[in-house]
Design a protein around this nucleic acid. Structure first.
Lengths: 136, 136
DNA sequence: TTAAGAGTTGGAGCTCACTCGATGTCAAGA
DNA sequence: TCTTGACATCGAGTGAGCTCCAACTCTTAA
């Protein structure tokens, strides 16, 4: 049975798994968003289950528009252990607020967009009817 | 009473009104997002009511994450008049779809975030209780 | 033995959306 | 007359977030 290897995966596998290119994964590591990955004997990066979970968390942050710098800040706190629970909670709450605001903003825009679409449909319908009448 | 002036505003006024810097307004014009503004006798840009409304529309597109290139594309169609109603409607519908998808995605993330916040609160509460007991 | 394929590094380059700086014109007010 | 302030143009610079390239090392399979 494999000794140290256990269930660690390569950068290529993580890339396929996460949809993030190997380039970008290394870039994230350089930026301090991902902690320096463990290495195999040949120097290749080895990602473990917890690394995959953290990446998923990071991607959720990203999707919600958090800038990398802020994600890194959170990552740094996390690396410092339990004593930073409070500041991390503060960051999460703040981000939650922004997220709710953003969702509301987008919903408003979606409403306006719907109105616009309805108007367009009507305009297109009207511009077609006279043509039919004329043809009659 | 003022003749041609009517209710046209300067770039500075539009900037204050919209929260977009004069630099950026000129940049938008150069990019074809805003149509070339009318000019006063001295060469200064004069924006009219319809220009302000169009800018508002553009900003709503922007807020919802539409890239400038796409907004310009819409602007170009609009400038071509009634005959482009159909392609514009198509663009609006497509964008609506993306917007709805985005809103759902964000809502999911908000849910996950809420869970995380709850977990953090519990962890913080637990890390406090033993300290109190020890002090007793 | 050679070639392919997956990884490594460092650094340059790219896109997007601004943002700024230099330089100039013009009109109004002290 | 001189200064201030708002505007103009043009081109360069910025920052975020990748994305690609060159050159190299290993391992494995033909």
């Amino acid at each position: 049975m494999g000794a140290v290897t256990s269930n660690a995966i390569s950068i290529g596998e993580l890339s396929r798994l996460s949809g993030v290119s190997p380039h970008t994964l290394r870039f994230y590591e350089a930026e301090g968003v991902l902690k320096p990955a463990g290495r195999a004997a040949n120097g290749h990066r080895r990602y473990r289950r917890e690394d995959v979970l953290w990446l998923e968390f990071v991607l959720r942050f990203k999707v919600t528009g958090m800038p990398l710098a802020e994600i890194r800040q959170y990552a740094v706190l996390r690396a410092q252990g339990e004593k930073t629970l409070q500041p991390r909670l503060t960051m999460l709450k703040l981000h939650r607020e922004r997220l709710v605001t953003k969702i509301n903003e987008l919903s408003t825009c979606a409403g306006v967009l719907d109105d616009k679409i309805r108007t367009y449909r009507k305009m297109i319908a009207k511009s077609r009817v006279p043509a039919k009448k004329a043809a009659k």
